[in-house]
Structure formats: structure tokens, C-alpha cells
Amino acid sequence: MDYVLIWAGLMAFAVFAYVILDGFDLGIGLLFPFIKQPRDKANAMNSIAPFWDGNETWLVLGGGGLYATFPLAFAIIMPALYVPLIVMLLALIFRGVAFEFRWRADSGAGMKRWDIGFTLGSFFAAFAQGIALGALVQGIDVVERAYAGGWWDWLTPFSLVTGLAVVVGYALLGACWLIYKTEDDLQKLCRRAAFGLTLALGSMIAVVSIWMLFKQDPYMKRWFDYPNYLYLLPVPLLVGVLSLYLLRCLRKGKELAPFLSVIGLFALSYFGLCISFYPNIVPPSIDIWQAASPESSLKFLLVGSAVLIPMIIAYTAYSYWVFRGKVKAEDQYH
């Protein structure tokens, strides 16, 4: 059994779970300044308050899991993406404390300050994650077992565009979550926003996908060598179909379908990325087998994960089920 491949799959799953789960609650931070009514703001916040912490735990699993199973990749990627990662951490602090602090502020002005922190924190976290993605895609200089570039190498037009793409994607996820969880004015607002954001995200996916192909030869080969393109052609086609379906659902006033469709869009894009990367974990030079921990470590963690990950999924699902249905205004009085 190839434990490295199993762990590459599990890590890919953890990162994807993070992107979706924290994606929608960061997205709500992005939409927050456009929500005007205090009650709607409270509703938006309360729709994620029981979940954000669990959602963010997937980020810790991503970091901790990489340290455990692909320590060489962790040791190279972290210093290479130094600035975006530090910005992300600081942004997540502002975002995370806002959930508590806005209710503890002395005045309306104090609350407004934490709301701004919530939005800016969400924005910079999303933007930094997108930049980190772009920086990884464009490749990282490695000499022996260490990062060999400077501390601004990540900053390119391409990484800025991927940063923006993630911001747009998260905002769309957040909007569709609120369509699902709220009613009336807030829902209407989100439906309008989702429409524009879908068009924006579709264009961003197209731009990044094409631009990416020219970043490194293996990407181009992966997608256009015979017979690969026969198998992979459905991916971009499905992105197009799903985007149209999403627009239709929004117009028809569907509540859950838009959210699921956006998850589908993320899944297809993510699948495209994984296909391009494989077998590298730090493009262009380090593959998953070079970066992996020895088998003793992979096995040791896998034994527990086989039990714990299904349990985590079960009680996380339970928690979402407990808070099912629309957020109600009267739920917020304490």
C-alpha cells in the first residue's frame, strides 16, 4: 500500500474541506459592509457563529498535517510564502475575535470598529490564501532541502490575480450560504450579489486556468498531451455548465442549490489544480514521495485518522444539523 499517496489524498481533502467551510464564513465577512440593517448583520453573523471555529480547525489540520506527513514541503512552503502567511494569520485574528468582541463593545462605534476588523480580516485572509495558491502554482525555488528565494518572490501579477479570484469565490460562497440560511431582505441582497459574483468568478476561473498553463511546462503537458485532454475535457465543460445552472437557480429563487453549485465549482477548480500539480507538492521540483515522512510516521497517524476523521465528520454534521433551518431574529436575544 502506498501510504504517501493515501496521505496526499487526505491532505488534499483537508485543504478542500477548509476552503469550502471557512470559505463561506470568510465570504460573510466580505459581504458584511453591504449588509445595512443591524438585525441582518446579526443574522449573518449568527448563521456562522456556531461553526466558524470548527471550520477554521481544518486550516490547523492542513498546517499540522503537512508538518506531520510532508515535513519537507511544510519546511519549504512556509518560509517561501512568509509574507502572505503572516498576513493571513494576523487577518484571521481580527476576523476570529470579532465574533465575540462586537457584542462586548461599549458603544455602537466600538461595534462598528470590530465589524470593520471582521471585514478587513476576512478580506486579507482570503486574499493572502489566494496569493499563496498563486505563488505555489508559479513555482518555488528550492536548493537541497530549503527554500532558496527571497521574501518577496511570491508577489507577481499572477499571484495577485489568484488572490482576487479566491476573494470573489469566497464572497460567492458566503452569499449562497446566506441565501440558504436567511430570508427576506438579506436573502434578496445576497441573491443579487451572487448573480454578479457568479459572472465574476466564472471569468476569473477562465483567466487563471489559461494563464496557469503558461506558468510551467508540466501543466501544459498534463492538459494537452494525448490522450489526457480527452479525459480532462469534461472539467472545463462542467465548469461552464455548472455556472449556467447556478445562474438559473439564482433566478428561480432556489435556496440550497446555489450553495451546492458553488461547492461544485470549487471542487472542479480544485480537481483541475490537483491534476496539474500531481505528483508534485512543491512545484516544480519536490514530489510527494520526496517530501513525505517515513512510513512509520504515516502509518502511525493513519491508524488514528481512520477512526477519528469519520467521527469528526459525523459530529460536525450533527452540529450543522442542530442549527439547521433559517436563522431567526428572535434566536439572538439572550
Binding site: T57, V60, L61, G64, G65, Y67, A68, T69, F70, P71, L72, F74, A75, I76, M78, P79, R145, A146, Y147, S293, P294, S296, S297, F300, L301, G304, S305, L308, I309, I312
Partner: peptide
């Protein structure tokens, strides 16, 4: 990062278990 590379195989799984 050098510490991470060297200790990851031992300390990483313990932290992984902490998360999980």
C-alpha cells in the same frame, strides 16, 4: 523550517493527533 523538516516525522503526528 529546519526544525520542521527534522522533527516533522516525530512531532508532526503528535500535533496531527492533537488536531484530530
Amino acid at each position: 523550517s529546519v526544525f520542521s523538516d527534522k522533527t516533522g516525522p516525530i512531532l508532526g503526528p503528535l500535533m496531527g493527533y492533537e488536531v484530530l
